[in-house]
């Protein structure tokens, strides 16, 4: 179904990705001093953008958030590349995105409520 249902689906997919990212961040922080651990991140927005720019209908169930190791932060002497400050920054961004999506969702529902008219 396109239209309002699609928006709810999109927001739901985003919230799912954000919860998974929060999990990844907690995992990274838990492994702050684990020798040899490389930090993990979630790839979702890029995949979604690619799907949305491609023609035809988008089946959101096909887009699964992907776990990957960015390997971009410098590796410490124990082979670990988790940086606490980076994780805090990621968490703040994640919280902001999550809040925005949840508020959009509640706005959408109150819009539907309005459309259903006085009870």
């Amino acid at each position: 179904m396109s239209g309002p249902g699609n928006i709810v689906d999109l927001i739901e997919a985003g919230i799912k990705a954000e919860s998974l990212r929060q999990k990844a961040i907690s995992n990274n922080v838990a492994n702050l001093e684990t020798p040899g651990y490389r930090r993990v991140d979630i790839r979702f927005e890029e995949l979604l953008a690619k799907y949305l720019s491609s023609s035809g209908d988008v089946d959101l169930s096909e887009i699964e958030p992907e776990i990957y190791q960015p390997k971009q932060t410098p590796v410490k002497s124990n082979g670990n590349d988790v940086n606490f400050e980076v994780e805090v920054g990621q968490m703040i961004k994640n919280v902001i995105r999550h809040k925005a999506l949840v508020r959009l969702l509640s706005k959408k529902y109150s819009q539907m409520d309005l459309a259903m008219g006085p009870k």
Partner: peptide, 16 residues
Amino acid sequence: SFGPIDITISGLRAQG
């Protein structure tokens, strides 16, 4: 919109 966050985090890392 996440620019300032990345910049301040880079500052925190540098001071670390």
